[in-house]
Amino acid sequence: MRPFLVLICPVLLLLGLSYLLPFLGIMRLSFTDPVPGLAQYRTVAEDPLILSVIWRTLRICAIVTAVSVAAAYVVTLLWVRGRPLTRSIVELCIMIPFWISVLSRAFGWLSFLSNRGLLNTWLKDAGLIETSLQMTRNEFAIIVGMSHYLIPFAVFPLATAMRNLDERTLIAAEGMGASRLRIFWQVFLPMTASGILGATLLVFVFSVGFFVTPALLGGGQSVMVAELIYLWIFQTPKWGLAAAMSVILMLGVGSILVLLMRRYGRIAQ
């Protein structure tokens, strides 16, 4: 055995014990509890309520991913290519959220968006609205909360792509008479495509498994897959169903990753 394999062994062992083994347990559970066979999977595939949760999850995650990546693109542009002062301010705004727990952030949004929260109060004081707008306990709140959490994660792949871009291609394009708009759409944006892809993957994969933010900001009204699994484990004893759902989630995310990396792996390099 090569020496580096020996050195890497403890990590493999830890991962095997803490991730692989429990996952195999979940797999087993999904085929055995409460009845052996594929019954749990059939329920997931047929129950309209479960399907609607899956559909909602995919929809919210797609929107959140689009919003986060688009917003992160602008933020990263300011961070990488802005003036020094802009850069420092943006950098702070990216870093600070990392030090605040996901729970505090969800509560923050709750107090900002709720019926008697800051935003509604301001809007009323300004005379823009008569009665409070319903901005929590719905998908809007979930999307706001999740996007806010995920934007910084999208920033880093984008920043790498923007920093690696050969400045001279932009100078060359400008020298050939291209307008700023054309340079952005036809040179800058396609040249940072690898970063956009990376950010999209990262954010989507993170968002599919989100639990705290949707649970708090959705207020039980807009249940997503992770919350459903939680309910099945802790509130109603449907462990087999929860296990089946977990396996599907895992395989779904895994196959999206593999497919996209196959398709766009060349660009990412």
Partner: peptide, 28 residues
């Protein structure tokens, strides 16, 4: 530069990596 209309070959070429040879030449 854009109004001078001179051609420029940059050090390291500064080609557009996402465009084909023909598209690169067609760009200007």
């Amino acid at each position: 530069a854009k109004e001078r209309g001179f051609g420029m070959v940059f050090q390291g070429y500064a080609l557009f990596p996402h465009l084909t040879v023909a598209e690169n030449i067609a760009f200007p």
